[in-house]
Amino acid sequence: MLSELQYPNDLAHVINYKICISESFIRLFTNYGPCQPVIPYPKNVEGRLFQKKWYERNSWLEYSPQKDAMFCFSCRLFLNEEKYKGRVAWKSEGISRWRTALKKIKEHASSESYMIGMVRWKGFQSQALDIALETANQEVQAARDKEKQRKREILCRLISITLYLARQCFPFRGDQESSISENRGNFLELVEMFGKYDSVVKLHLDVIKEKQEILKRSQVSLLSNRTQNDLIKALAISVRRVILEEIHKSKIFSILIDETSDVSHTEQVSFVVRYVHDLKIKERFIQVFNVQSTTGEALEKEVISMLNTNNLNIDDMRGQGYDGAANMSGIYNGLQSRLQRQNPKACTQPKSSISRKCKIKYSVCNLFQFV
C-alpha cells in the first residue's frame, strides 16, 4: 500500500494509517531511507519555508510534505522505549518553526537521543548488509556446488568411456578431430553417441557449442587430448596403487622384463610383475620406460630405480624372466646375474620372447579392470 503513494516513507502515512513500528516495518523504511523530497516548499505565516540545503550535512533529517514539518529519521524508527516516548518533537509532532530551524537542528545533532538513534540505525544497516552478503554468498556457493556437481557427472561419464577404450585396447584419437570431420576418433565419437541418449552429456555439448559460437574461440570442454591423457594417467595411478597393494600383501614376487624399440627407434623396456594373490597367480604390467643404453649395467640401474619408485624391495624378489639376449640373461654381466648378486634368491626362468609379449599385451588390455 505504501509503495503506491507518492512519498511512501513520509512519516504522515505512519500516523494516518496507524502503522505499528515492527522489525519488518523498520527494515522496509531503512531501505527507503529518510524522506527528503525536493519540492516547492510552502511558506508559513512568517513567510519562511524549509530549505533543501539542510539535507546536505544532515543525512538523518527528513521532511514530511503532508505535515510541512521536519523529523529525525533515526529517532522515529529506533527510539521506541518507554523513556523516549515523551520526546515527540523530532519523532511524531515535527519541527515547523523555520525561523529557529537551524538552531533546533544543531541542538538535536548534539543530543543523547540523536546519538543513540544514529548508532542503532548504523548498526541495523550493518546487520542488514551482513545478511545480504551472507545470502549472496550462499547463492554463489550454491551455484558453484551445482556447477561442481555437473562437472563431476561429466567426468564420471568420460571416465567410463576411457575405461571402455582401455579395456578393449582401442585407440583414443583420430587423424582429424575437428567438428567437420566425419570420424573424430573413438573417444570423441563415443562422447557424441552418449549425447544422443544422456541428458547430462547433451547439455554439456550444447553449452560448449553455444559458447564457441558466441566467443568465437575454443572453450574448456574436458574433451581435449590433454584431458584424455590426464584421465588415462589418473586411472593408471589408481590401477598401479591396487596392484602394488596386492604385491605388498603377497610379500614375494618375480619380474618379467623385455626390451624392444618403438617406431622412432627409441629403446624401451617393459616391466611386468608376477605374484600370487588370493591363491591366484597374477601377471601385471607396471610400466614401459625408455633407456639410453641396453647394457646389463644400465638395465640394472633402471630396474633398481623402477623397484624403488614402486616401493618394491629387491630382497622380496624370487624370480626373473628374460629373453635369451646376452645383456639380459648373460651369466657374467647380464641383467639376471647382476640382480642375483644383490639377491641370490632371485632365480632366473628363461621364457620365449613371443610368449611374454603376448602376456604383456594381455596384461595391458586388462589393466583397467581394477577400476
Rank of each mutant, 00 (worst) to 15 (best):
L2V: 09
E4C: 12
Y7V: 09
N9K: 05
A12K: 11
N16E: 15
Y17L: 15
I19A: 13
C20R: 15
I21Y: 00
I21C: 06
I21K: 04
F29Y: 13
F29W: 11
T30Q: 06
V38T: 10
V45G: 07
E46M: 11
E46C: 10
K52M: 12
K52G: 10
K53C: 15
W54T: 02
W54M: 06
S59G: 07
Y63M: 00
M70Y: 04
C72K: 06
R76A: 08
K83E: 14
K85T: 09
V88L: 14
W90R: 03
W90Q: 04
K91M: 07
G94R: 06
S96E: 11
R99L: 14
A101N: 04
K104Q: 13
E112S: 10
M115C: 12
K122P: 02
K122M: 13
A136V: 09
Q138I: 12
Q138S: 14
Q138R: 11
K148E: 13
Q149I: 09
Q149C: 12
Q149D: 15
R152N: 14
R152L: 15
I154L: 07
C156Q: 09
C156G: 05
L158Y: 01
S160Q: 10
T162K: 01
T162H: 03
Y164Q: 00
F170D: 11
F172N: 04
R173I: 02
E177K: 00
R184W: 06
F187P: 00
L188V: 05
L188P: 03
L190F: 02
V191D: 02
V191S: 03
Y197K: 11
D198A: 06
D198L: 04
L203N: 12
L203P: 00
S224E: 11
R226T: 14
T227E: 13
A234K: 01
S238K: 05
E245A: 08
E245T: 04
H248P: 01
S250Y: 02
K251F: 13
I252A: 11
F253Q: 05
I257R: 01
F271A: 05
V273A: 14
V276E: 13
H277N: 11
D278L: 12
D278P: 02
V288T: 10
V288H: 03
F289N: 09
V291M: 12
Q292G: 13
T295M: 10
L299M: 07
E300Y: 04
I304Y: 05
N310C: 09
I314E: 08
G319P: 01
Q320S: 02
G330Q: 05
G334P: 00
T348S: 08
S355H: 09
S355R: 09
R356D: 05
K359P: 02
K361D: 14
Y362A: 06
Q369L: 10
F370D: 01
